[in-house]
């Protein structure tokens, strides 16, 4: 492994952006193509799947953009902390 690499998929921001993105796609799809009259009537006509889906897509895009702009750089080896850096546990 190189000395430093970006956290990639393990950056928690990627995970948040990814999960909300998938949810956003599912909900937007449901809101556009599968909203029944009965369902809409329950919320007095508000298509909550559609709007929540769009909202999640926006938040998802914001997180993924943040990751692109400011990638997280982590050292490949755990940096030894001054207190007990020698313990390797193996």
């Amino acid at each position: 492994m190189s000395e430093k690499h970006t956290a990639g998929a393990f950056d928690v921001r990627t995970l948040i952006g990814g999960l909300l993105g998938v949810y956003g796609l599912i909900l937007t799809g449901l809101g556009l193509f599968r909203a029944t009259e009965a369902e809409l009537a329950r919320g007095d006509g508000l298509n909550i799947n559609l709007w929540a889906g769009i909202g999640m897509l926006v938040v998802s895009a914001a997180f993924l953009t943040w990751v692109r702009l400011r990638p997280l750089v982590v050292p490949a080896e755990p940096t030894s902390s001054p207190a007990d850096g020698t313990s390797d546990g193996s």
Binding site: T36, I48, N49
Partner: peptide, 8 residues
């Protein structure tokens, strides 16, 4: 139960 459609 009362308000949310499947999906949400």
């Amino acid at each position: 139960r009362d308000l949310l459609p499947n999906g949400m």
